[in-house]
Amino acid sequence: MQPFELVRAPSPSDAAQLTKDEHTRLIAGGTNLLDLMKLQVETPSRLADISRLDCAEITDTPDGGLRIGALVTNTATAVHPRVRQDYPVLARAILAGATQQLRNKATTGGNLCQRTRCFYFTKIDQPCNKRDPGSGCSAIEGVAKLHAVLGTSDQCIATYPGDMAVAMSALDAEVHIMKEDGTERSVPVRDFHLLPGDTPWRENELGRGEMITAVTLPPPVGGAHYYRKVRERSSYAFALVSVAAVIEIEGGVFTRADLAFGGLAHKPWFDPAIGAVLLGKAADDALFDEAADVLLQSARGFGENDFKIPLARRTLRAVLTQAVEDAA
């Protein structure tokens, strides 16, 4: 790690203000940031410790939803009785990610900002447009098994590696952001992460002078919740493909199908058209394929990751088949 000074931010707005300096990073759990600092992928000269700020609570919202503070650990979210009861897809997604040790430290805000696992991003001696704008993308013609098949650009094919945000995307959660002046704005999780386009270093909506303070979940939507993660180990591995689903089936037809996908893109992939294919229709294989066709209509593989396209289709089919069986 390069030398840095460690300061403690007394409030979210102070923390937000500190991030106006491009060499300052906020640190909470630190599980991703310190990892990258040791590799000198991140080289801040100042760390602002926000871990003791008053953003570590889970509270009910007036409309019956849930507000998860930015500093709530992944563990605290996953084990919270209301999350388990009303938003099991979120608990499942978190529990499918990382390890207990990491989840005990990792926070809601930090996890939303988790950076890609692209092999070339994490090696400072390799060209990477995300880390070193204009240097090129090594992954496109390199080892790209983990990489994206949706929403890629000729600048970057990295994936967002997290699980939590995929479930939040299915749940249509909102990210709350405090600005340096103490005012707040909110962004749907579905819009929080960005596609790489020509600016792969911009990964999300968070700007300088801002800090995430919370994520709110809407009132419980009911339905059956699924988080299906396909990975190369049975635990402790990043998703090849993951599917977060909130499904309701009444009288044999889909009445709700909120679907989000991980491992496929630079962001949790949500497209309302995928679920819309299913609504009002009776479940069958052909229908599942139709939904997968919408998901994958613009999919493009880069050789090693071509398999993600059929795998995404099959994983979606697995989840929908399971939902149909459970509803029977």
Binding site: L6, T31, L34, D35, Q101, L102, N104
Partner: peptide, 24 residues
């Protein structure tokens, strides 16, 4: 934070001691 050999218990919670700053 990839192997767990550094696991310690902080305030009752197990964490990877390699991925946290002592000063925090």
């Amino acid at each position: 934070g990839q192997c767990g050999a550094c696991t310690v218990i902080v305030n009752g919670m197990r964490i990877n001691s390699c991925l946290t700053l002592a000063a925090m």
